[in-house]
Amino acid sequence: MSECADCHAVGRFGSCEDLFHVLLALDHQRLAPWGPHHGVNVACYYLQHPSTAPKNTDDGQWAMIEAYGTGGLEAVNQIQSRRVAENRHGLFKPHDAMPAPARIHPPSFTIEDLSVDGSFPAEGYERRMNRWVSSVISERLGPV
């Protein structure tokens, strides 16, 4: 076990990157509960693991987190639909997205917690996603 330098998870079930790949495999099956949360999963992961986030891009990860925090998956789906439509017409500009505020508190819930035992069980997944999003928001804005 080794502690993650970005989120300080202890690595009980492998590295955060290993867990992220397991989660992405579940997301890409497009099955509930994982698939519908794909955009939020990616945003949470990259916001808690900035050293792994793609360089020179801002795909609006913070907008996804804020949308989920205030309006759930429906709000996220609206953002994603709008982006797809804008992209189809060559209008989407990722640099127009609002950057995330700087982290001021350490994470209280990480991908390791979301995974429960490394397997991301379906039972309780949405509740755990709410905790992950709340953690990412409180890391930057204080307690929610």
Score class of each variant (00 low, 15 high):
residue 113 D to E: 10
residue 98 M to E: 15
residue 77 N to E: 13
residue 104 I to M: 10
residue 119 S to H: 11
residue 83 R to G: 08
residue 101 P to A: 14
residue 74 E to N: 10
residue 114 L to C: 06
residue 73 L to Y: 00
residue 73 L to F: 00
residue 99 P to G: 11
residue 86 E to M: 10
residue 100 A to E: 06
residue 114 L to N: 06
residue 108 S to H: 11
residue 84 V to N: 12
residue 106 P to R: 14
residue 108 S to Y: 00
residue 111 I to G: 06
residue 111 I to S: 03
residue 91 L to Y: 01
residue 80 Q to I: 09
residue 113 D to G: 09
residue 78 Q to D: 09
residue 85 A to Y: 02
residue 81 S to P: 00
residue 107 P to M: 03
residue 89 H to N: 10
residue 87 N to R: 15
residue 98 M to P: 13
residue 102 A to I: 10
residue 125 Y to S: 05
residue 106 P to G: 10
residue 99 P to C: 03
residue 89 H to K: 14
residue 97 A to N: 15
residue 104 I to T: 13
residue 102 A to V: 12
residue 106 P to K: 14
residue 93 K to V: 15
residue 87 N to W: 08
residue 88 R to N: 09
residue 109 F to L: 07
residue 91 L to H: 08
residue 111 I to N: 10
residue 80 Q to N: 11
residue 97 A to M: 13
residue 107 P to H: 05
residue 77 N to K: 11
residue 111 I to D: 00
residue 92 F to M: 09
residue 80 Q to V: 12
residue 86 E to I: 01
residue 111 I to Y: 00
residue 125 Y to F: 15
residue 100 A to R: 05
residue 117 D to W: 12
residue 101 P to Q: 10
residue 117 D to Y: 12
residue 108 S to K: 14
residue 101 P to S: 07
residue 99 P to Q: 09
residue 95 H to L: 11
residue 99 P to V: 13
residue 95 H to P: 00
residue 81 S to M: 06
residue 88 R to V: 01
residue 117 D to E: 11
residue 81 S to G: 07
residue 102 A to P: 10
residue 72 G to H: 02
residue 118 G to A: 13
